[in-house]
Nucleic acid binder design. Structure first.
Lengths: 130, 130
DNA sequence: CCGGATCCGCCTAGATACTG
DNA sequence: CAGTATCTAGGCGGATCCGG
């Protein structure tokens, strides 16, 4: 279960390097929505309203802002089609698939964490009780 | 590189389940500091000021608040020693080692992401330019 | 209905200073 | 050293509006 990142003898440089690397990662993925938007787009391009429905509680304003940041950072591509009415879709770039492992680990951990909290009667610490 | 979470045919239920699981994870690990504090404690118990030095830019108020939340969520244990002056240390609980895989993936991704940004001349999107 | 933009306002992260 | 007090700026969200 443990990786070589954890439970090894003290090592200041390696620890500092880890902190910097994780800082970089968290900086790019900041906020509570970016990763969730990416997950929503994993099974193909979606329209603005579809993403909003997937995430349920995000407001259009926040979604708009997050999508712009994701586009700037090269995770998402916005495509406009000249249909009538105009259609806009968002889809993942190839680079965003580099996040696959992180998402998978977060998903696995989230599942076991929910189980852990329920078993120890601490379900109040969950994101939602559904 | 890809896990089975990504690049598979559309599957609404699985996608929704992923979103909920990742929501749970992000909810427990919210903010930009919790994971970094845990990394800082990986190589053994540390005192308040030591953690602050590791993280460099965190203010004592935020560190105090984050440590309290980490304690409530069962990731960190606070220990007080009746020395003069009083000494306080924080250390990881066994449960926090369940985060090992997430940390490792974040660390690896952070490293490659920094490299990616430097190579594509987008270093302005990095957490710090050092 | 779709893809947003705008106004309003809370809450909290963060800076700075201070205390036992 | 281990935090707390005070103040401020900005992230984030609710509600509403608007052109197509």
């Amino acid at each position: 279960m443990l990786t070589d990142t954890i439970n090894r003898p003290p090592n200041k440089e390696a620890c500092g390097a880890s902190i910097n690397a994780i800082k970089d990662a968290l900086y790019a993925l900041n906020g509570k929505w970016k990763l969730l938007i990416i997950v929503s787009l994993v099974d193909g391009p979606k329209r603005f309203k579809e993403i909003q429905r997937d995430l349920e509680t995000i407001t259009p304003k926040i979604l708009s802002k997050e999508l712009k940041e994701l586009e700037l950072n090269g995770f998402v591509e916005r495509k406009v089609f000249n249909t009538t009415p105009v259609t806009v879709t968002y889809e993942l770039t190839p680079y965003s698939s580099s996040l696959g492992n992180i998402m998978n680990e977060l998903r696995l951990w989230g599942i076991q964490h929910r189980k852990h909290l329920v078993e120890t009667s601490k379900a109040q610490y969950l994101a939602s009780t559904t």
